[in-house]
């Protein structure tokens, strides 16, 4: 008798790779049981393609629903989910779109779709209680520079070769101008969301460096040094005040 692991491998290959020949002999149901397994194959395919179309509506707006559907159909075969929550499926779909030769005329598609992934991720976040300026000034000054700051969970920092944040703002506003021109340009963006609300902010390179390094867990002093390398005029103290005003900080962690 075929071991269960082998049976499941054959069924998996039928679902993902449409290889029904190998599994047919062990199936029962109707006159041609493999046709019945096609119900599961269709569900696998359609449910995952739908999940991607739901996850990337702005990308479909940009390149058309058909283009996203075609790419998604290829993607679900090439890269079956390795996550158990379908809302988490498709994080690398932007790279897949970027590698599709049929989309080579849209060189910013990967950046735009990657931005959309982050928009979807942060918009369902829930803010934590924010650190106030009083909390920060009450901290041990001698340890502040070596400490790290924990940012709100619904924040993402992205740097992109195209200013696709402008395109995303157009999509989100629903106000499409008669003409829109875009040239390649390195863009630094903060995407912040909570409970369905969303803000996309273009940052200066130094501010972006400081905030993204803080988010990555870098000590305040080291993050400030990197930001100052990008812009000698960068003011870490003023930026920390701004971060408090924006309710972006949630916790200070001292490092021994």
């Amino acid at each position: 008798m075929l071991p269960l692991s082998e049976t499941q491998r054959l069924v998996r290959n039928a679902l993902v790779a449409s290889d029904f020949d190998a599994v047919s002999p062990i199936l029962v149901g109707g006159q041609a049981p493999a046709e019945r397994l096609a119900v599961h194959r269709r569900h696998y395919h359609a449910s995952l393609v739908d999940a991607l179309r739901t996850r990337y509506p702005a990308t479909a707006w940009l390149i058309g629903d058909l283009a996203v559907t075609v790419a998604a159909s290829r993607y679900v075969i090439a890269r079956p989910p390795r996550v158990f929550c379908i809302a988490e499926f498709g994080e690398d779909f932007p790279q897949f779109l970027g590698s599709e030769s049929s989309l080579s005329a849209v060189p910013y598609i990967e950046a735009f779709a990657a931005l959309e992934w982050q928009v979807g991720r942060v918009s369902v976040a829930v803010d934590s209680p924010a650190l106030t300026l009083a909390d920060l000034t009450a901290a041990d000054a001698s340890m502040l520079m070596s400490s790290s700051l924990i940012l709100q969970p619904g924040v993402a920092y992205m740097t992109m070769d195209w200013p696709v944040d402008a395109l995303m703002r157009i999509y989100l506003s629903g106000q499409v101008p008669p003409q829109f021109q875009m040239e390649p340009a390195t863009t630094h963006v903060e995407v912040r969301g909570a409970r369905g609300a969303l803000h996309i902010t273009t940052l200066s390179p130094a501010t972006w460096t400081f905030r993204s390094l803080l988010q990555a867990g870098r000590a305040i002093g080291l993050a400030a040094e990197d930001a100052l390398e990008r812009d000698p005029q960068f003011d870490p103290a003023r930026t920390l005040v701004e971060l408090c005003d924006l309710l972006l900080l949630t916790r200070l962690e001292y490092r021994v």
């Binding site: 049976t7 491998r9 998996r12 679902l15 599961h40 569900h43 696998y44 079956p80 390795r82 499926f89």
Partner: peptide, 21 residues
Amino acid sequence: WSTHAGEYLNDLLPLPYTDES
């Protein structure tokens, strides 16, 4: 079953009803 070798197949797939299962 829904998973095989780390892949999640997003469906509730049938099992053979055997002693092994």
